[in-house]
Write a protein that binds this DNA or RNA. Structure first.
Lengths: 360, 360
DNA sequence: CTGTTAGCGCCTTCAT
DNA sequence: ATGAAGGCGCTAACAG
C-alpha cells in the first residue's frame, strides 16, 4: 500500500498553530515590519518554520502577489551562443529575484509560439524571445497576436535578434559585422570568397550575408566573387557546406561562416578533406563564442558581447534596478510609445585561421 | 496617460460569448470528446479562439488540473557540461509536454536550497538537482528537509551526480573514470603525475581524484608520484593550476584535469608558458564535452553521455512514457522503497594531447 | 494592530 | 448533456 501523499501545509494551518487569523499570518510573513505585533509575528514565523510552510505560489498569483516570472524562448540551451546569452539573462533575473522558465524550440516556429502561449498561461510578467525570427507571414501573425495579448494584460516582452515585429529588442549589428568581415578579408588580399550560410529565412543569416555581399559590391568586385552555400544553421550544416565547397573545386581563398558553430563544423570537414587552414583557405566565423580561441588553428570570428546582450534584454523587460529610483520625481509616461532598440556592436577578431591568401 | 492594462480574458467571458455556462465551457475545452454536445463545443472553441483565451495556469493549478512542471537546479547553463545535460533533459520534458523552470546556483549551496524551495512553492511536480553536491552537513540537512517535504506532498526528485542524499539518481562512474585515466597513463609509460582538482568538497571532484589515486596505488607507485593541486572548478581554476605546476618545476609528465573546462584553462596557460602539449606534458580532461576534439591539440578526456544522463534523469522523475503501459497488469507498489540509481559508464578517449612521456 | 469577508479563475461534484 | 454551487490557498479591502 502506497502512502497517500500528505496534503500540503497551508497558511491556515500555520495561522491555527500560531493561534491567529490567516490574514495576520499572511501579514506577518510578508507585510512590512510595522504592520503586525512583534509577539504575534514571532509566533507565526516560528510556526511556519516548524511546519516547513512554503506558500503556494499559484494561490498567491491568483490573489495577486505574483512573484516576478520570466519566460525564455530559444533554440537550444546547449548551443554555446544561446547558452552565453542565457547566462547573462539569468544573472540579471537572479538579481531581481525573478524565476526563469525555459522553452527550447529547436528552431520550430510552431513550438516558439506554443511556448509564448504557455508562458502567457503561466502569467509570466515578461517573455524573452532569443534568437533569430522567421520571415514566414503566418508565424509573424500568430506571434504578433500572442505578444500583443500579453502586452495588453500588462506583460512585457523583448527580442534578442531581429524579429520583424514591434517591441523592445537587443540587436547585434549583424549587417555591419558581415561587412566588416568582408573588408578585413579584402584588406588581406582575398578576392574570391565562399560563404557558408544558414537558411535565408532566418533574419540573422540574411543580415550577415547581406552585409558581407554589400561590402564586396562596394569594393567593386563582381557578384561572382562570392559563392554562397546554404545549409543547416548548425555544426553539421557547416560540415556539409565545407564538403560541398571542396567537392566543387574550392574556388575561393577565404571562407566566411555565418556562425561559429558552423565554422567549427567546417573546420572539422576541411581537416578531414586535407584542406589546410589557413594555408589553403582562410576561415572566419561569427559570434566569437568562447571556444574559438582554443581551436586548432585559433579561429577568427566577429565578437559579440553575448552575455551582455542577455543581461540587457533582461533589463529591458524587468527594468533596470538602478532606474527604479529615477521615476521618483514624476511621470514615467512614454513606455510602449516607441520600442527601445539596443544595438550591440560586432567587431572582427582576427586569429591564426585567417591570413593573406597564399595561392591563386 | 498610460492605458490601464486590460483585464485578462477568463473562462467566464468565453462561456458568456458562447452562451453557455462556465462549467460547459471548461468541459468543452478540456474534457473528453463525448462529454459535451457537438454544437456547443464548437461554439465554445470558436469563442475561445476568437477571444484568444488562454487558461490561467495558476487558477488551474489551484483547482487541481496542474500541468506537469519540473524545476532544474544547476550551476550554470553556460557551462558546456550542464548545457549538454540540460539539453537531454529538455528533450524528454518536451516529449512529456512538461514545462521546465531553471535555477542557476553559480555553485552556492544556499542558492541551491533556495531554488528547491521556490520550485516547491511553485508546486513543481518534479525537481532535478544537477551537478555535484556539497559535503557540508548544514547543507545536507536543509536539502534533505526540503526534498522530503516535496516528496511528502507527492513530488518527485532526482539527482544527476552524487549527493550523499537518498533519492533516485543518475550517476557517472567518476571513480572508475579516474582510475581508468590513471591506468591509461601508466600504460603509456608515465610515472609522475599532476592532478588539477577542484575543491574537495564537491563529491564529483573527490571521487575522480580518489579513483585516480587508488589506481596509482594499486600499481605500486608511491603517493609522491601524484601531485594534486586544488583550485577553482572552472576554466580559471585550470589556468591557475597549470601556472602553479609550471612555477613549481613541473615534476610530472602527465596532467589530469578533473574536468574538461579545467583542462581548457590549463591548456591555455601551458601554451602561454611555453609548455608544449603533449611533448612536454600529456594532458587529459574529464567529461568529453563536444569541443575537446576540436582543441589544439585534440584533447583526451573521459567520455560521459551527458545528454543521455539528462534524458535519463528526466525520465526518472517524469516516468518513462513507454513504461506507463507496463503497470497495466498489476501493482506498481515499491516506489521510494529503494531509490533507483542509474550508472553511466565513463570511458577514456585518448587523443593527440596524450602520448608516451618524451622526457624524464 | 487584528479578525472577518470577499473574491482571484478554474474545476468538479451534485443535481437536473 | 448541461447548469449551479462550492472550494483550492491566499491576499486585500473593510471593519473593529
Amino acid at each position: 500500500m502506497v502512502d497517500q501523499p500528505t496534503r500540503q501545509i497551508t497558511l491556515a494551518q500555520v495561522a491555527q498553530a500560531a493561534g491567529v487569523s490567516p490574514a495576520t499570518a499572511s501579514r506577518a510573513l510578508h507585510g512590512g515590519d510595522r504592520i503586525v505585533g512583534d509577539e504575534l509575528r514571532a509566533r507565526v514565523v516560528q510556526a511556519a518554520r516548524r511546519l516547513r510552510y512554503v506558500p503556494n505560489a499559484h494561490a498567491q498569483a491568483l490573489a495577486n502577489r505574483a512573484r516576478a516570472t520570466v519566460g525564455l524562448v530559444m533554440h537550444d540551451v546547449s548551443d554555446p551562443y544561446f547558452a552565453a546569452i542565457t547566462r547573462g539573462a539569468m544573472e540579471v533575473a537572479a538579481a531581481h529575484g525573478a524565476l526563469v522558465m525555459l522553452g527550447s524550440t529547436f528552431r520550430s516556429p510552431d513550438r516558439e509560439i506554443e511556448y509564448v502561449s504557455t508562458f502567457r498561461s503561466q502569467r509570466a510578467q515578461a517573455i524573452l524571445i532569443v534568437g533569430s525570427g522567421f520571415s514566414d507571414p503566418d508565424y509573424l501573425d500568430a506571434m504578433r497576436a500572442e505578444l500583443f495579448q500579453h502586452r495588453d494584460v500588462g506583460g512585457r516582452y523583448a527580442f534578442v535578434s531581429h524579429h520583424d515585429l514591434p517591441g523592445d529588442a537587443v540587436l547585434p549589428d549583424n549587417a555591419a559585422g558581415g561587412a566588416a568581415v568582408a573588408r578585413s578579408l579584402l584588406e588581406l588580399g582575398h578576392r574570391r570568397f565562399a560563404v557558408a550560410a544558414g537558411p535565408p529565412t532566418l533574419t540573422t543569416v540574411e543580415h550577415r550575408v547581406a552585409g558581407f555581399v554589400s561590402a564586396i559590391d562596394e569594393a567593386g568586385l563582381p557578384r561572382s566573387a562570392v559563392h554562397v552555400v546554404e545549409r543547416e544553421f548548425s555544426e553539421n550544416g557547416g560540415r556539409d557546406a565545407a564538403h560541398a565547397l571542396v567537392r566543387g573545386g574550392l574556388d575561393a581563398t577565404a571562407l566566411f561562416c555565418v556562425s561559429d558553430v558552423m565554422a567549427i563544423g567546417a573546420l572539422t570537414a576541411l581537416r578531414e578533406q586535407g584542406v589546410s587552414v589557413p594555408h589553403d583557405l582562410s576561415l572566419i566565423g561569427f559570434d566569437d563564442i568562447p571556444v574559438m580561441r582554443h581551436l586548432c588553428p585559433a579561429t577568427s570570428s566577429v565578437r559579440l558581447d553575448l552575455e551582455g546582450m542577455g543581461r540587457e534584454a533582461m533589463r529591458l523587460v524587468l527594468g533596470d534596478p538602478s532606474s527604479d529610483e529615477l521615476g521618483a520625481d514624476g511621470d514615467s509616461v512614454e513606455e510602449a510609445v516607441d520600442p527601445r532598440r539596443v544595438h550591440f556592436p560586432a567587431e572582427v577578431v582576427l586569429r591564426a585561421s585567417t591570413t593573406a591568401p597564399t595561392r591563386r
